[in-house]
Design a protein around this nucleic acid. Structure first.
Length: 580
RNA sequence: CGGGGUGUAGCGCAGUUUGGUUAGCGCACCUGCCUUGGGAGCAGGGGGUCGGUGGUUCAAAUCCACUCACCCCGACCA
């Protein structure tokens, strides 16, 4: 592509709407432009990147045996009523009506449609397994779109859906996708991890998220510093260590005006870890729960919801709490005063011998309380793991918290949709069976932007070669030197037409500084600069975007060869998984 | 949806507190000269419903009311 014939408009100044570097660089580099909140246009450069990422995804999906289709973006409401999600999905679902006042949705995901397709055609176990995927624009009316393509309302997603005859088959399909995902993100040049994830509202069994590691990521993940264990915070566990020391006799003590854990523990000269604090929540049905966790722990609401079979938990307001008869600051698990409230204690409390707990009486706490002796309630893992706790897998390493950007998610759905939508086939014995399903998503735009978030410097983007809009750039610094320009023209022609390598040829009559800065901003991996002086010596300069200090002057006759070698080298590097 | 904030040229901003003639600056854009290894310089030029609606006033970017859009912080997701 000749720059002069392209549609690339770069901006010199940081963009006000961009809160993170990758969003700013996408805007400044002329990759995308905003149309409305969370809705973006892909300009030529941006579209090139999207196509590169899509193509990698497509190749790996095909290699894993998935079949590409393209489903309708606009879907009839009936399908969503069948699955039950017409009611469950909430405001994120963009609902529209046609001229006949019939309800439709703009698809945020395609479980319903794909299930409808497969149940129509795959009637026999002989048709299985099957995995259908598409790369398509989705719409989710997010509460808060942000960070450009990172969390758009309209976004491009690859979504795949597997259908198997039984659970074992589903497990195999899932693992195939898992392998494909590793290949995809590796080939995109990303440093990433797969983490155990909560299955959330979609329901189902196993689930893993693919996280690109980045301090600006919106998700917190827990990793072990010595083994491969990694999980998101809704899933992460750690090993509980027993409280040292022996049990003591339960005692009620006066704690006047000490309501917070901090105050009480200070007053009683007790480590907060050896106290239990109460958190009172209600779920979507209005049912009230009281959770006890250690004083210095945080309740994880998702874990808590799972433990109580709730969809959503919200903390009680002070007024609501008062109505339950519980005394704020003095709530404790011993002689709990309200029988209608379900109590869940965190697992860790079982290993504590001398807990400080509220006495359910104004101005009093118990000390030396012990689970199983002084009180007993349902227990579950409902807390957030803390940094430096012991890994549950290798039982040796320490857990660390890092941040990540979720670029992919794989799920075992099981029978959820096939049962709801009566998607069935006949097995070997002629018996009707529901499909075992899996679903597998990748955010295409998010993946591209995550790559920028991980690969940039003060000058701009440093694209991994596999997803760069162009692989090589040619920058003549003097547009008046006919010999030099002719040479660049021929080189450009050779790359494009003989080698089939995509280059961006900056044939503009701009000054050197403008061209070089624009190129650094856009982030093309390999640069060939042809300056007047070196050209007169039959040399051109070749450098990599990621290391501009390392410039090589090569004889102009071997410039193309040298650039092609560099290109091969960069692709080779992507064969290894980047160390985290 | 709750909390905070911003809307003035394509982008980044000043002006609003204390109302007062033709609404300004930098970048970008157009013309000419000059310059060509890191966003140069000079001269000339085009581009604005001051987010919208209504009100107060002799007079509104500026004051008041309503409204819309967008951004940031929290709970959900690719």
């Amino acid at each position: 592509m000749r720059y002069s014939e392209s549609f690339i408009y770069t901006l010199k100044e940081d963009q006000k709407e961009a809160a993170i570097v990758s969003h700013n660089l996408l805007l400044r580099g002329g990759f995308i432009s905003k149309l409305a909140s969370g809705i973006y246009n892909y300009l030529p450069l941006g579209l090139r990147v999207i196509k590169k990422v899509s193509e990698i995804v497509r190749q790996e999906m095909n290699a894993a045996g998935a079949l590409e289709i393209l489903m309708a973006a606009v879907q009839p409401a009936e399908l969503w009523m069948e699955s039950g999600r017409w009611n469950d999905y909430g405001k994120e679902l963009l609902r529209i009506k046609d001229r006949g006042d019939r309800d439709f949705v703009f698809g945020p995901t395609h479980e319903e449609v794909v299930t409808d397709i497969v149940r129509k055609f795959a009637k026999s176990y002989k048709n299985l397994p099957v995995n259908l995927y598409q790369i398509q624009t989705k719409f989710r009316d997010e509460l808060r779109p942000r960070f450009g393509l990172m969390r758009g309302r309209e976004f491009i997603m690859k979504d795949a859906y597997s259908f198997d005859a039984d659970e074992d088959g589903m497990d195999i399909s899932y693992l195939k996708m898992r392998d494909a995902y590793f290949n995809i993100f590796r080939r995109c040049g990303l440093a990433f991890r797969s983490v155990e994830a909560d299955t959330g509202s979609i329901g189902g069994k196993d689930s893993e998220e693919f996280m690109v590691l980045s301090s600006t990521g919106e998700d917190e993940i827990v990793v072990c510093d010595s083994c491969e264990y990694s999980a998101n915070t809704e899933r992460a566990e750690s090993i509980t260590q027993d409280e040292p020391g022996t049990e003591k006799e339960l005692k009620k003590v006066e704690t006047p005006n000490k309501q917070t854990i901090k105050d009480v523990c200070e007053f009683l000269d007790k480590d907060e870890q050896f106290s239990a604090k109460a958190l009172v929540y209600k779920n979507e049905e209005g049912k009230i729960f009281c959770f006890f966790v250690e004083g210095d722990d945080e309740l994880n609401e998702i874990k808590a919801a799972r433990a109580t079979g709730s969809i959503e938990l919200t903390m009680l307001t002070d007024e609501e709490l008062e109505k339950t008869g519980l005394l704020k600051g003095y709530i404790g698990p011993i002689d709990f005063p309200n029988k209608d409230i379900e109590i869940v204690c965190d697992n860790r409390l079982k290993n504590r011998n001398t807990l400080v707990v509220g006495a359910n009486e104004e101005g009093y706490h118990f000390v030396n309380a012990k689970f199983g002796r002084d009180f007993e309630h349902k227990t579950a893992d409902i807390r957030n793991v803390k940094e430096n706790e012991i890994c549950p897998r290798c039982k040796n390493g320490r857990l660390k918290k890092i941040r990540g950007i979720e670029v992919g998610h794989i799920f075992k759905l099981g029978l959820k949709y096939s049962k709801a939508m009566k998607a069935e086939f006949l097995d070997k014995n002629g018996k009707t069976q529901p499909f075992y399903m899996g679903c597998y998503g990748i955010g295409i735009g998010r993946t591209a932007q995550a790559a920028i978030e991980q690969n940039n410097d003060e000058k701009g983007i440093i694209w991994p070669i596999s997803i760069a809009p162009f692989e090589i750039e040619i920058v003549p610094l003097d547009s008046k030197d006919i010999g030099l320009v002719n040479f660049c023209d021929r080189m450009y022609d050779y790359f494009e037409n003989t080698l089939g390598i995509e280059v961006l040829y900056d044939d503009r009559a701009e000054r050197a500084g403008i061209k070089l800065n624009d190129m650094d901003l856009i982030g093309i991996p390999i640069r060939i600069v042809i300056g007047k002086k070196s050209f007169a010596d039959n040399k051109v300069e070749i450098s990599l975007r990621r290391n501009r200090n390392d410039k090589t002057l090569v004889d102009r006759d071997v410039a193309i060869e040298y650039a092609v070698e560099l290109r091969e080298k960069l692709y080779k590097e992507l064969e290894k998984i980047r160390e985290v």
